[in-house]
Amino acid sequence: MQLNLSELTSKKNLLAFSAGVDSTALFFLLLKDEIKFDIAIVNYNLREESKEELEYAKSLAKKYDKQIFIKEVTLTGSNIEKNARDIRYNFFEEIITENDYDNLITAHQLNDKLEWFLMQLSKGAGLVELLGLQEYIDKENYKIIRPLLHTSKQKLEEFLKENSIKYFVDKSNFEDKYRRNYFRHEFSNRFLSEFENGVSKSFDFLQKDLKSLNINYTPIFKEKSLTIFKNLHDENLNIKVIDKHLKKEGFLLSKAQRDEILKQQQTVISNQVSVCISDEFIWICPYVIKTMNKKFKEFCRINKIPKLARAYIFNRKIDEKEIVKTIYS
């Protein structure tokens, strides 16, 4: 089972732990990939098994040399699910603030994402609400990361059984008085058992579409046929900006050309258009071959003007200093 854990490497991470299938599987997957982390667990004292789950969490922390943070609470009143969530996340944020953690890792998985989607769909929701469970969420002083969102609960259970890893099952997950459980048992689990691959791909496409809705297509610099955009630090967004701009110029990119741009970062398309994706900007202009003087080339080098854009700027006598002043202002 391969997870994308690059955001957790060399960071101080806190895992929200419960001893259930999801968080236990994630605990051992993080160990397997040598990701450093500590754990936090909340005991709501709603079930007898919660004491055993807490002891199991303590034993794992001791065995694998993890710091463990524990909160004991007694939940009462109505809307227990919301109250539990509020208590849990307030506790996590206290730990993160006091101990300078970079990331909070939660074990939400593909079934959770589909359950949420169906719950929102049943109430009437837009794309943002339907895709409420995001893989990365930037908070004020930390990031929430959910590395299991592409992995089904069934696969996590298989991983635990194959490796003879102990875990607990929360019996309240089988009570249909909770709205989420109704969607889980009546719809999402059964649907995923047959169409897991398609569901995962659909969520990927929807996520890309959601990001695309927020694209800023306005260039930060434009003179003659030189156009410069901000690098949006997302391949899907960057290629949409490039594609839309070139369409306006009457140049239609093929899929192979889009793939080439993303792979090479600085390339010439059909011997006509230079496209350069630098650390901060996207440069687009006609491809030109022109001899340039040393002073101009040195200025471009120092100010990180891409090589494939320099000849056009020099040939059309665009003020290179004005370019730099504008894009860095």
Rank of each mutant, 00 (worst) to 15 (best):
L26K: 00
I145Y: 10
N197M: 00
S152C: 07
F17G: 01
M119K: 10
L46M: 09
R47G: 03
N83E: 14
E162V: 03
I289G: 06
L160R: 10
R146H: 10
I228T: 06
I105C: 08
E49C: 11
N45E: 12
Y64V: 07
S152M: 03
S152A: 03
N90C: 08
E235A: 09
D86K: 11
E260K: 15
E98H: 08
L118G: 03
K255A: 15
K201Y: 04
A61H: 12
A125C: 09
F69I: 04
A25Q: 08
H150Y: 08
L252Q: 11
Y178W: 14
L246Q: 11
I215K: 10
E7L: 09
S6N: 14
R184P: 09
F117Y: 15
L31T: 02
L54Y: 06
S212N: 13
I145A: 01
Q265S: 12
N90A: 09
S6G: 06
E175P: 05
N13Y: 11
F314Q: 05
L130D: 09
E249G: 13
F168C: 14
I145V: 15
F203G: 03
Q2K: 14
C300R: 01
E162D: 06
I39P: 13
K224G: 03
K208P: 04
Q207F: 02
N43Q: 09
V73N: 13
K307A: 04
N303G: 13
E194R: 08
S164R: 11
N111Y: 02
K12T: 14
S274H: 05
R190S: 01
I302T: 13
N173H: 13
R184H: 06
Q257G: 15
L75I: 15
A107M: 02
